[in-house]
Design a protein around this nucleic acid. Structure first.
Lengths: 253, 253
DNA sequence: TAGTGGTCTAGACCACAGC
DNA sequence: CTGTGGTCTAGACCACTAT
């Protein structure tokens, strides 16, 4: 029952009570909450108010609703820990790129689909790649799957001048991936930088990554620089935050 | 007006239409949306349906509602870009730690409050610090502010054995911060690792960081290792994702 | 078929901002 | 005082899941 004199909105009281029962283990991970109509009777409020309360927990990612089945306590997702030393040249020579390296290390069956096209650079792209806005760039748009489930979106952009006549403009870049083709063309990679942020997914990203509402995405923009310091490639990656953790390591001095 | 034959829920149609007008610039950053009662007439749906639509945009972080004033297009937050070179020994010697180094670089007035206490290590802490669960750890709980606004929460834990008799157990760790005190005590830092994730804030974090609903937090667990490879300190940081971007850089080989 | 969540209505009253 | 968002009601009907 809710306290009508506290000044706290009823739906927040209900949400807080349910949240407490979940964290206390009274509703275990994976278990079903009472139906909305049952909660109406338990708390003595109308159904829209119960729905407001449940929606609070949904946007917090604590529960998921399944149409026709019920509302369930979301079990903690298994997290893939990815460390960044995977980008060594040695690893690139062994296999077909960073994502397949992860797959090998983590033991899942990888697959991906790629679209290649050519665009004029927008301001952001031009800034990262140190070219003029409007210059032609090669765009590789990838959807990566683990055991059939989409786990990562990546859009890679390179100055067209670097990719002409190479397999980077093909769907299949061949053994070692795009980085290997760059190095064969004489563009040795000297340095990587990654810029990491987080935000809520766009509707398209949410459906592509099959994340439930309330789960943010991690955004990573990786820039590969040549040994002369010139940018060779930028790669915008979008990862579901409930399935990934990124690790970085460096010497203290 | 909404299309009742499309099968798409009315509130999603309204949300999509508003989102489009916002990204197209028809409602500029900082500007006010039409009132909910105006939108009721515009789209021909009831007020709760309009509220559902606006709530979609709120959880996406696109708009913010201000009670009694209106709904406003959220201006892009100014993002602080933090790169890892802030942890150089040189920087540590110049000032009082990583956060103050950021402040100096970015030109805001920093302040922070600290609580120090001692706890028994839980399993996670014991795992990171390579000690036994139940061993005593020194806990430094910090709230960091920029120009008075809370921008970062950090909880630092060290094995008590390393901090006894040092200023690390004081609220004021003195010039150079906790890392400087560790090195004075003979524990030279050899390596850092950072583990980065993202999630929705807990209600406490949301109010402490004053993030609007729908903005995720970035979590960073930094572990400092001694030159012998033994963990010296772990630091759990929570950053509002709309105000931070993290950068990491490394050599290709 | 019964039970579940998903959507929607047409109101009502309250709390806050600003003139 | 007016206009704004915040909360809440008591229903209704639909779409999906499971038996």
């Amino acid at each position: 029952m809710v306290d009508r004199t506290s000044g706290v909105p009823a739906f927040r009281q209900v949400a807080a009570d349910l949240r407490e029962k979940i964290t206390a283990g009274q509703y275990a991970p994976g278990s079903q909450l009472p139906s909305e109509r049952d909660l109406v009777e338990t708390y003595g409020v109308s159904r829209p108010t119960i729905r407001d309360a449940v929606n609070v927990l949904r946007t917090e990612g604590i529960v998921v609703a399944e149409h026709g089945r019920g509302v369930f306590v979301r079990p903690p997702a298994s997290i893939q820990r990815i460390s960044r030393n995977r980008l060594s040249r040695e690893a690139r020579e062994r296999n077909e790129g960073a994502f397949l390296a992860d797959a090998a290390a983590l033991g899942f069956t990888p697959s991906s689909s790629v679209k290649v096209n050519f665009e004029a650079a927008d301001n952001r792209t031009a800034g990262y790649l140190d070219i003029e806005p409007g210059d032609e760039v090669t765009v590789r748009d990838r959807v990566m799957r683990a055991n059939g489930l989409v786990v990562q979106l990546a859009v890679s952009r390179l100055p067209r001048a670097l990719t002409r006549g190479t397999a980077i403009e093909e769907v299949d870049t061949g053994k070692g991936g795009a980085y290997a083709r760059l190095e064969e063309a004489g563009h040795l990679i000297g340095r990587f930088a990654e810029h990491v942020g987080a935000r809520m997914p766009t509707p398209q990203e949410a459906s592509a990554l099959q994340v439930t509402p309330g789960v943010p995405v991690i955004t990573v923009t990786r820039v590969a620089y040549g040994q002369d310091g010139k940018p060779l490639e930028m790669n915008d990656m979008v990862l579901p935050a409930d399935r990934y953790e990124l690790s970085y390591e460096w010497e203290a001095d």
